[in-house]
């Protein structure tokens, strides 16, 4: 019989790894300070005791250990790497850009790279410009990778399980402000498929396409807008690469209005891609107003709490954007 528990996002991530490690001996964890330190964000906790030799502290050598995980994956393991901050893709970028996603294609399908890179992303913790970025658009520009941003504990567990079982390199961006959020998660074995969006709130007047933490902010905005008589649909993409285009297209055809919300900076962001995707689809003919994007300001993430908050989309900005869109 399946039970349900309210657990944190961090625990959901941990449970996914624990359950997969119990089931599959080829799953190992590698990362900086994931052992006795219990992970920089406390995700791994006491897993190093439960799985001796399989929760491995690495040197501060991101290219070295991500590369090692790729080689291990090509030789039969299923490594899950924790990259402490997603900003650190810069110091192992060759592995993420030129190695992991290229092996299968470049060598004609002979080799596969079943590995996961979990990494803490996003701002809101006062960690400033080098520890707060949302770099998903860069990752989505790399065919051969899969990229997911879970917004709830349920998805954090289900998407990670899918990622561990997937035969391709998958990057999971775990937004730092979500780690302590709670949600209902069944104790039974389940997965959330990669590449499938979720309609979080049904509405008729405007579609908001978003992902990650901005899903929650958008839902709150939608509730407020409902009081004004504006019915907003909120789509949580969950996986950014490959993207569930049809769910977005169908929603836009219904509501005839589209607002894209993300925490990443606007220029060259996923919003541009989603907007272009709609422009190229038959949903374009249904639009009653131009597509809008509400994103972070095009600046490095500032330190001061007032500034950090100020450059991001929030409930009020989303409400204003939807009002303008449907107005």
């Amino acid at each position: 019989m399946s039970t349900q528990n309210e657990i944190t996002y961090a625990q959901a991530v941990r449970d996914a790894m624990r359950e997969e490690m119990i089931k599959d001996p080829s799953v190992v964890l590698m990362g900086e300070d994931i052992g006795v330190y219990r992970g920089a964000f406390g995700v791994t906790q006491d897993m190093y005791q439960e799985f001796p030799g399989r929760v491995i502290d690495t040197p501060i050598s991101e290219a070295g250990f991500v590369g090692c995980a790729i080689g291990a994956a090509m030789s039969g393991m299923r490594p899950v790497v924790e990259l402490m901050f997603s900003d650190f893709v810069s110091v192992c970028w060759d592995m993420i850009l030129n190695q992991a996603p290229k092996m299968h294609f470049m060598f004609g399908g002979q080799l596969k790279v079943p590995m996961v890179i979990r990494t803490a992303a996003g701002c809101g913790t006062g960690a400033a410009a080098q520890h707060s970025q949302s770099l998903e658009a860069m990752l989505c520009h790399i065919p051969g990778l899969k990229v997911a941003v879970p917004s709830t504990p349920y998805d954090a567990k289900g998407l990670l399980k899918s990622a561990i079982r997937d035969n391709n390199p998958v990057v999971i961006l775990e937004q730092k402000l979500l780690y302590r959020t709670k949600g209902i998660v069944p104790s039974r074995d389940y997965t959330v498929p990669l590449g499938k969006a979720e309609i979080r709130r049904v509405g008729n007047d405007c579609t908001i396409v978003t992902y990650g933490r901005m899903t929650h902010v958008s839902i709150r905005a939608a509730e407020k807008l409902a009081e004004e008589g504006i019915s907003t649909e909120v789509i949580d993409l969950r996986t950014l690469l490959p993207m569930d285009k049809s769910t977005v297209i169908e929603s836009v055809k219904k509501t005839k209005h589209l607002l894209i919300v993300h925490e990443a900076v606007k220029t060259g962001g996923l919003g541009a891609e989603i907007s272009a995707m709609i422009s190229e689809s038959d949903a374009f003919y249904y639009l009653d107003a131009p597509i809008r994007r509400l994103c972070a300001e095009d600046v490095p993430v500032p330190f001061s709490a007032v500034l950090e908050k100020g450059v991001l989309p929030d409930e009020a900005k989303i409400c204003a954007a939807v009002r303008e869109e449907v107005g």
Binding site: A63, V66, G67, C68, I70, G71, A72, S75, P79, D94
Partner: peptide
């Protein structure tokens, strides 16, 4: 790319050892 093979080889060796 010059260099990454060194890290990839560590991974295969890690797998063999495991």
């Amino acid at each position: 790319i010059v260099g990454p093979s060194a890290a990839l080889a560590c991974g295969s060796a890690f797998a063999f050892k495991n």
